[in-house]
Write a protein that binds this DNA or RNA. Structure first.
Length: 153
DNA sequence: GCCAACGTTGGC
DNA sequence: GCCAACGTTGGC
């Protein structure tokens, strides 16, 4: 069964436009260093799952694109790269700690801003909108996905 | 296993 | 830059 996710990226790091400029409009979702977010990618994501591409830590945070999961999980190579800020000394090739999936942007949308998301009664329970939530990857229900789709039409 | 200290996230 | 919220670390 198809599942849905919201994935945060800082546009100063990787924006929707950056991904659209990449080969196959696909990016390896590197840099996640939170176990819960990793577990979503490693254990629950399936090829074809829907993804809301969200810009965070920027002037106008919000949903800015529709994407999908296009790979099974595999090790995040940045954990082995000593020059990367995502380097993890405790991770080895034999025993990788951080896994990721490839995400393909299907289309850039208008900015569905955080305040606008908060206005929607149907999205009241959305994980991303919960107080204190900091997870960079959160599940989205089918109803929430549908609601967001409607708002982006 | 507890929990204080510390670091990070991310909206504002 | 501030700071609330939360995750991680490490001493005990």
């Amino acid at each position: 069964m198809k599942q849905y996710w919201l994935m945060k990226s800082e546009p100063s790091d990787v924006s929707v436009d950056d991904v659209l400029a990449m080969r196959n409009q696909t990016v390896a979702w590197y840099g996640v260093r939170n176990y819960q977010a990793r577990n979503y990618m490693r254990d629950q994501m399936k090829v074809g799952d829907g993804v809301l591409f969200y810009h965070s830590s920027c002037a106008e945070p919000g949903v800015i694109g529709l994407a999908e999961v296009v790979s099974t999980p595999y090790p995040d190579h940045t954990q082995f790269d000593k020059k990367s800020k995502y380097y993890d000394a405790k991770a080895t090739e034999e025993n990788p700690r951080w896994m990721l999936v490839d995400v393909k942007v299907l289309k850039k949308t208008r900015l569905l801003s955080l305040p606008e998301l908060r206005e929607q009664p149907e999205l009241e329970e959305m994980v991303i909108l919960k107080r204190g939530n900091r997870l960079s990857i959160t599940p989205v229900t089918a109803a929430e996905w549908k609601c967001v789709g409607k708002l982006l039409k």
